[in-house]
Computed example of a mutant assay.
Amino acid sequence: NVGSVYAYNLEGCYIEGKLSIASAPANLAVFRNINNSCINTTIFLQDETLASFITASDGEGGPSPTILNTDKMTFLQGQTETSRFKLVTDAQMKDAVYLADIGFDIVP
């Protein structure tokens, strides 16, 4: 945890697990400046009003976009994608052809 960020400046990471957030500052970012990574994390918001204060933002660079699983991170549904930041479902995350089509590097 760096200030109000749980994960900062990650490159080429796969993150899986569960994160529970009971309280947070208004400027909380769960993930910030993540590049070429896959975030497959369930995030529990104990106070649903925090959802508007939680953001996941991508950094610059890296050979492929960061992908985030919206089936597990439901607060991201409806967010806008960028060339560096792609939102996928559980089914899409398991589909290598789909991931390659959106530019995510698949390593056999």
Rank of each mutant, 00 (worst) to 15 (best):
N1L: 11
V2W: 05
G3F: 07
S4D: 14
S4W: 03
S4H: 11
Y6K: 10
A7Y: 04
N9P: 06
L10V: 04
C13K: 15
C13I: 13
Y14S: 11
Y14V: 00
I15G: 09
K18T: 12
L19G: 03
I21P: 00
A22K: 15
S23R: 11
S23N: 07
P25F: 00
P25G: 08
P25C: 09
S37I: 15
T41F: 07
T42H: 12
I43K: 03
L45D: 07
Q46L: 15
T49D: 13
T49Q: 14
A51T: 00
A51G: 06
A51P: 03
A51E: 10
A51R: 13
F53H: 09
F53I: 05
T55N: 06
A56L: 14
D58C: 09
D58R: 02
G59K: 09
G61E: 08
S64K: 03
P65T: 02
P65E: 00
T66M: 02
L68Q: 04
T70Y: 02
M73R: 12
M73F: 10
M73W: 13
T74K: 14
T74A: 14
Q77S: 15
T80F: 05
T82G: 00
R84P: 07
R84V: 05
R84D: 14
L87Q: 11
V88M: 03
M93G: 07
M93D: 04
K94S: 02
D95Q: 00
A96P: 00
L99D: 08
D101I: 01
I102H: 08
I102E: 02
I102F: 03
F104K: 13
P108D: 13
